[in-house]
Amino acid sequence: MSRADHRLSWPVAMARHALLLAGSGLMLLPFVWMISLSLKPPEEIFRSSFSLLPQHWYVIENYAKALTAAALPRYMANGVLVCASILALQILICAPCAYALAKLEFAGRDLLFRLVLVGLLIPHQVLAVPLFILGYRVGLLNSYAALIFPFVVSPFGIFLFRQFFRSIPDEIVHAARLDGLSELAIVWRIMLPMAMPTIVAFSILSVVAHWNDLFWPLIAVKSPKLMPPALGVVIFRGGEASTEYGPLMAGAVLVILPLVLAFIVVQRWFIEGLTSTSLK
């Protein structure tokens, strides 16, 4: 409230806006340019004079090409399938474990938790070679399963859920036991509903990470039919479209759109989720 007395004088306020608008401009420049190019026909793209909007709108041609020439809808459907599977399995596997680590007493609990912390230390890229070999041996490579299996258990997820479950009073667990719930039922019917904010935050992080991931899909799948969006863009670009900026940009717009739209709609959750999970 006393900030009111530190309200910026108008030249300072203008300077603040000027700086932030300049920053915003730089941040947005690639997005604006992407959209601009996705609207233009090739001859306008390759003209050295530039304008934001095209003289001849080429929207349908570019976007149609992005959707047909490359299997962009397929890539995005793959992305949805893979992200959804990963997230569902992560919650299914991590939440019960987190509950056991947070609320049950058993020998070796601290050891198991230490194992989770070790997992937290390991950057996932380090695991690429052994997981590749594992996938190869088991015959999983070049399948949806190949894209999913390395991520089904998330040390970060276990850690996050455990921290939250620990903040729930033991009395609630005891009351649920007296009400006749099994331990698994306690996890699903009591703990997880209470952990909704944590679930939302974790879901956002998980989906963003795997929708955008390029490293592992590059290793795990070769068939274009299986590729998730990030890899799809690379293939699209590397293939026929390398000089066809219009369709390529249209493809980029389409790949980015779902997350950006989701972000704009639930901006607060994204940012709060990210901050709360990062700072824990």
Partner: peptide, 8 residues
């Protein structure tokens, strides 16, 4: 998606 933005 950085892969897409890289092409931009």
């Amino acid at each position: 998606t950085l892969a897409a933005m890289a092409t931009v």
